[in-house]
Each structure stands twice: as C-alpha cells, then as structure tokens.
Write a protein that binds this DNA or RNA. Structure first.
Lengths: 112, 112
DNA sequence: GTCAAATACATAAGTAATCTATGTATATTT
DNA sequence: AAATATACATAGATTACTTATGTATTTGAC
C-alpha cells in the first residue's frame, strides 16, 4: 500500500467486486490484477490479502476450491449469493465516499 | 464515521484542504462543516479530531491561536507554508486514489 | 546448470488511525 | 431547571493494515 493510507478500508470492496465481475480468481492473481489496473500504485501485501480472503470466506461471502497446477497449489475464490448482496452495499458506500470527498476537496463554486 | 471504514486515512487531507481554502477555523467548526458538506455521512469524532490537530501542529503544518469568545475557549488553526506544500501532495494522492478506485470498480468496457 | 526472481500459499508481531468512553466547563434552548 | 449544544481534552480498545518471516515450486537470466 506504500505510504498511502487512503486504500485502508477498500480491500474487501475491491476483492468482492473483482470476483463478482471476473468470476473465480486465486489470491496471487488478484494482487497482480489490482497492481496492473492501478498502474502499480496499489500493491496488496500478502499479509493483508490472505487473512482478508479467509475472513470473507468465513463470512460466507466467498467460496474456495483448491486446485493443483503441476505441483503448485492454487486456491480459487468465487463470490457467493451473500457476497453479491454485500458487494452492492459496499459499492454504495464507496460511491458515497467518493462523492463526499469530491464535495469536500474540490474548490467549490460560490453561488451568487 | 459510522460503519464506513473508507474515511480512514483521509482526515488529515480534509483538515488541511479545508483550512487552505477557508482560512482559519477552530476544531468544532471543522466537524460541523464536514458533517454539513457530507450530508451527515462523515461525522468526525473528537477522539480523532483533536489528536490530529495536535499532530499537524507538531509537524509544523498548522499554527494555532487561542481566543476567548466570552468565557469559552476557541483554538483557531491556520495552515502554514509547509502545510500548503503538504496539502498539494495529499491532494495528488487523493486524486490518484479516486482514479484507481474508479478503474477498479467501474464495469470496464471490453476492447474489441 | 545454477542462482535470482517470480509464483503461491501462510501466519505472527508491530504500527497507526480511528472509535468509544470519559472528563471538564460554558452557552443556549425548551 | 434541565437537556442539549458548544468547545476543549485524553486514555484505552479496536482493527486494518505493514513488516517480517516461513515453506515450496517454477521460470528466466547468465
């Protein structure tokens, strides 16, 4: 996450939204995808990613399937029905947050 | 802040930007202004606000003047030159964050 | 062909921003 | 007169994250 604290709180939203759109993905793939889309600005650390995936699974928002690619394990995650409900709520919160930040931070036009 | 974790990390940016635009403000006034602009969605708690103001002052980004209104104390904060440099950096980070979130969360148009 | 980097998972300990709770005191509204 | 709003403050708990460490396989560079 670099020195930028702003991404704090958005990890679950990103994971669930990505899985809702792309279908199943495995952890490492998520980190690479997010890094690419954000032009390298948001690097999800493993210490943040894996505990969050476990948490979302424990909450019933994701399901997991373990597969082997040669001798290497991959854990593919998919979004559940509850996960889809939750991601809708999280998206509403994110949109609200961005709207409020733009109101707070954009120089406002003074009304006559 | 309610249940919404997204505001975490944006408090210093908001305070500095507000003071950069509005000139001097006191703590309680900042909370009311932010609550109003965000339609009541972002309520800055006192336990977050006052330590942050002290921190920004200690970092030389704000200066403070104590005034009395009747018998009641107010601590008016103003942004310093260093504060103006810092707020420019923080704004760049915020713009980058919002841009990246929009890339990550908006349904992307598939290129042919 | 071997050595570094990338891939792929995981957890433990520490950090820091925040919330909750508490405290003090004055001013305003009901 | 009592409740609410104004205005400051701090201590302790929470929690999302970072840093550090661990294991193991695969790929790429030289």
């Amino acid at each position: 996450m670099g020195t930028n604290q702003l991404y704090k709180g958005s990890l679950s939203t990103i994971i669930l939204k990505l899985l809702g759109e792309k279908g199943r993905m495995y952890g490492y793939q998520i980190t690479q995808e997010v890094k690419a889309i954000s032009s390298g600005e948001y690097v999800i650390t493993e210490g943040a990613l894996y505990p969050m995936l476990h948490k979302l699974e424990a909450q019933g928002l994701l399901t997991v399937e373990i597969e082997m690619t040669g001798n290497r394990m991959r854990k593919y995650y998919s979004i559940t029905k509850n996960g889809k409900n939750e991601v809708a709520n999280l998206m509403t919160e994110m949109e609200s947050y961005i709207r409020n930040m733009q109101s707070l931070l954009n120089p406002k036009i003074e009304l006559a």
